[in-house]
Simulated scan of single mutants.
Amino acid sequence: GKAVLGLQRPTAGTVEVAGQDVTGMSLRQRSRQVADLRVVFQDPYSSLNPARTIGQTLVEPLRLMGVTGTEALARARSGLESVGLPGEAVDRRPAQFSGGQRQRIAIARALVCDPKVVVLDEPVSALDLSTQAQVLNLLADLRDQRGLSFLFIAHDLGVVRFLSQRTVVLYRGQVMETGPAEQVAQRPRHPYTLALTAAAPVPRPAEQAARRAAREAAGFGTAGAASPSATGCPFVPRCPFSTDVCVAQRPPLRLLDGSLTACHHAERVPRP
């Protein structure tokens, strides 16, 4: 997420927005792209300045684009209304809102510039379940209404499946599996994806207990239990299917059942 936003220089590869390479752009050049690429941060309590009104917060990115005065304030009010908050909230401060409302304000701040791409960094993980559902439904509606592209970063595959069309599963910075969101969630072919699926909470205690027992029986190790292989698969220390070839050779991505999977033994991974 930081590499895409230009907050951290990538060590390899390129970042393209709407077909334009923005990887090596200077800060001056990137400032012209501010309307095309926006972000919603994880914590709604720390991403808003408590000393500023909501109107001041929403108008600031517009000011950088040259939109000022009554037009900027009108767009700020419209942005709040688009996320289900009253336009007069521009005169209030963050302390007067709940966590879910603050995240709606953060979403309005991202959308007020009418961007092409929005980076969502764990946007619902700090919220309770009912508020999570409201924010996710709001994001889905805004995506469809405005034709937005979301780069949605999360650890819960269930949430990813709800909002995304394509999923990329990363472990220690390496792509483990990628494919259509429904395919990856329903029929994972990488052991790490299977572990994530098994760890996702469900609202039925009996099923949750069965999932936990199945995960423990599979023998997945805990994160940080051992150092990853320098030459092989980074998931080796935790993987119950690993063999010598996994330690010696990093598996390439290969197509299997509609997904690209980086695993030497993907055929052995059981269905959840």
Rank of each mutant, 00 (worst) to 15 (best):
E267T: 04
G84E: 13
T167P: 07
D244M: 05
A195F: 06
V34A: 14
A195Y: 05
V117A: 04
A154I: 01
F235H: 06
E216R: 07
A185S: 13
T70L: 08
L151R: 06
R146I: 01
Q96N: 12
A12P: 03
L73Q: 11
R166D: 10
S259M: 09
V83A: 10
P61E: 06
V175D: 14
K2F: 08
M65P: 09
R189P: 02
I54H: 05
R238F: 03
R28M: 00
V17N: 08
V40H: 01
C239Y: 02
D121Y: 13
R172H: 14
G221R: 11
T53G: 08
A217V: 07
E16K: 08
S229A: 13
L64M: 07
L136H: 03
P86W: 11
R77S: 07
P10Y: 04
C263R: 02
G79H: 11
R254P: 02
R104E: 06
R172C: 11
L5P: 04
Q186S: 15
T231S: 15
T14S: 11
A74L: 08
A198K: 06
L80D: 10
G24W: 08
P234R: 15
R32L: 09
E122L: 04
V15G: 07
V112M: 06
A248I: 13
V22W: 12
P272V: 11
